[in-house]
Structures are given as C-alpha cells and as structure tokens.
Amino acid sequence: MPASPRRPCLVIRPDDSSSDEDPPSPTRLKKKVVFADDHGRPLTQVRIMTEPSNVPPLWSHKFLAEVTQGMSAEPVAHGEPWEITFQQPASSYIEFRKKLDQEKVTLENVIVKENEEILLGTIKVSNLAFHKEVFVRSTTNGWKTSEDIFCKFVPNASTNTVSAAYVLYDTFSFKLTLPPKSRRIEFCVCYKCEGKEYWDNNGGLNYVIVKKVQNKFHRSNSDEFLSVKSSEVEKMHRTSSFDVIQTINKVDPWSEFACWNHVDTSNPYW
C-alpha cells in the first residue's frame, strides 16, 4: 500500500484583511501551524455531541451487544437475611460493666456477615487467672444437639505494656457458621477459669438470631408497587410542612434553633 503523500506542517494563508483589489503581499501572509502524524494525517478528531451534557450518550444495540457479550442484567437472587433479636450488650456501657463485674463473663458485640454466612462476635471476661478457656455453645434445633466453638484471645495494647496481673478484662473472639437451611440459632457463652465455670445466657433467654421475615407488602414482580391516594400524600406533605413551620416560629432568633435538641436519645448512638 503506497504511503500517503506528506504535507507540510507550516501552512501559509493569505490575510483576510487585505483588499480584494490589491494582490496579496508576502509580508502580509498569516502563518498557521498544523500538527500531523508521520503520514501527514491530523492528530485530533472533532466529534459533535448531539445530546445535552446532562443526558447519557445514546448507544446503539450493536455497541451494547459488543460490550455486554450476551450477559443480561437479571437481578441476583439472595437468601433471606439474618436478624439479631437482642440488643448489643456493649451498647449500654454501665449495664455491660456491671454484668461483667458480677458474672465475670459477658457477650460484647456480634456482627452478621451475610455474604460469608458467618456470625462474628467478641466476649469480655474478668482476668481472674492467666489460664482461661472461653467457648460458645450453639444449637440450631432447640438444644436437641449442640456444638462448642472455642474462642481466640485478642491481645490489646495494654496487654503488651502492662503486666498481665494488672489487666482487669480480657477479650476473646469467635466465629459461628450460619447453616443455610437453618432459620434459628441460639447460643450462650462459657468461661472456665481455676476449675470454675461462668456462663452468660442472656438472663436465661440465650442469644438468638433468626431468619428475617420478609415484609408482607413485598412483591415478587418489580413492576408492582404499593398505591397511595394522592389526597393522602398531599395531606402528609401539608402536615409535615405545618409542623416544621410551627417549630421554626417558636424559635427567636433563628440561631437558637438546634436540630440536635429534637433527636431521640432513648436508643444508643452507633
């Protein structure tokens, strides 16, 4: 294939300001630099966008087929989520410390990892002696059978800098596997030290997690939605707007209004 004819980078154009009657003068010629590749072709391309800046570009079906390569955007089916039925013990610190001092062991926090089907948790125990044994006893069939999962010691900064005799509490972690076919798991915590056993069974109720019940208004068809009358929607908007205006009118001046004064503090802040 023959190479494209080369063209110079320097293009000389006549000055448009010169009169049509006068011949172009070499001293009045304009110079324009054009950058090209080694074959003389332009280095840039100009494309005109017909869509506004706030609208995505219109892609052809052929382009989408090349990008997706036959894959579809069907929703991925997920299993039913797990629900923790008890309050996190450490959320109320005063009660948590009181229970720890009295019973020597207490569950601290738990986290459900849905994607891995596991339950992670931490346990606090009183440092009664150096040698300790902590485990979690769980069941999925109402205690017809049970399984003991031994916990791992979690070192902290004070453990490395302070003598073990002066550390008041130790932390242990555990991991429970959530069987896919189970809908309810109960567990309790045991702490063995110096020949004695200390149990935390949530006041006799055990710690329970269950498969979360789906909302009764859930629809399998994504095209179906709950319908609310427009009059009811307008009523809700009017009521909420009226409440906000009444609250603002009671404050004088505006700088004294603090939204944090209206926050519900009955539950712990996460």
Results as ranks from 00 to 15, higher is better:
residue 118 I to V: 06
residue 38 D to T: 12
residue 126 S to G: 12
residue 265 T to Q: 12
residue 198 Y to M: 08
residue 164 A to Q: 11
residue 33 V to H: 05
residue 136 V to R: 04
residue 126 S to P: 07
residue 24 P to M: 09
residue 171 T to S: 06
residue 189 V to L: 05
residue 1 M to Y: 14
residue 210 V to D: 09
residue 61 H to I: 13
residue 120 L to Y: 01
residue 137 R to W: 00
residue 47 R to L: 05
residue 255 S to H: 08
residue 177 T to F: 09
residue 93 Y to D: 13
residue 221 N to T: 07
residue 49 M to R: 15
residue 38 D to P: 08
residue 201 N to Q: 12
residue 73 A to F: 05
residue 191 Y to R: 08
residue 173 S to E: 06
residue 196 K to S: 07
residue 62 K to C: 10
residue 148 D to Q: 12
residue 89 P to E: 02
residue 156 N to W: 12
residue 121 G to N: 03
residue 259 C to N: 14
residue 182 S to M: 05
residue 269 Y to F: 15
residue 116 E to R: 12
residue 54 N to K: 14
residue 164 A to F: 05
residue 128 L to C: 03
residue 53 S to L: 15
residue 194 E to W: 08
residue 63 F to K: 14
residue 204 G to P: 01
residue 247 T to N: 11
residue 268 P to A: 06
residue 204 G to F: 00
residue 161 T to D: 06
residue 38 D to M: 11
residue 6 R to M: 11
residue 102 Q to S: 13
residue 175 K to P: 04
residue 224 E to Y: 03
residue 22 D to R: 07
residue 36 A to W: 09
residue 172 F to D: 01
residue 25 S to P: 02
residue 188 C to K: 13
residue 138 S to D: 03
residue 161 T to Q: 08
residue 3 A to R: 12
residue 52 P to G: 07
residue 154 V to Y: 04
residue 263 V to I: 07
residue 244 V to F: 09
residue 250 K to H: 06
residue 76 V to W: 04
residue 43 L to Y: 01
residue 21 E to W: 08
residue 131 H to C: 11
residue 175 K to T: 05
residue 264 D to P: 01
residue 121 G to F: 00
residue 37 D to N: 02
residue 159 T to D: 14
residue 202 N to K: 10
residue 31 K to I: 05
residue 270 W to Q: 14
residue 99 K to W: 02
residue 51 E to Q: 15
residue 229 K to L: 15
residue 222 S to N: 05
residue 187 F to I: 08
residue 64 L to H: 06
residue 53 S to K: 15
residue 125 V to P: 00
residue 26 P to Y: 00
residue 197 E to C: 10
residue 8 P to W: 07
residue 110 V to M: 05
residue 36 A to C: 15
residue 105 V to Q: 00
residue 15 D to Q: 08
residue 191 Y to V: 02
residue 201 N to G: 09
residue 242 F to Y: 14
residue 47 R to V: 04
residue 113 K to Q: 13
residue 95 E to T: 02
residue 59 W to G: 10
residue 251 V to L: 14
residue 232 E to V: 11
residue 194 E to L: 09
residue 81 P to S: 08
residue 213 V to M: 10
residue 177 T to S: 11
residue 146 S to I: 07
residue 69 Q to S: 08
residue 145 T to P: 01
residue 181 K to R: 13
residue 220 S to Q: 14
residue 256 E to P: 13
residue 127 N to R: 07
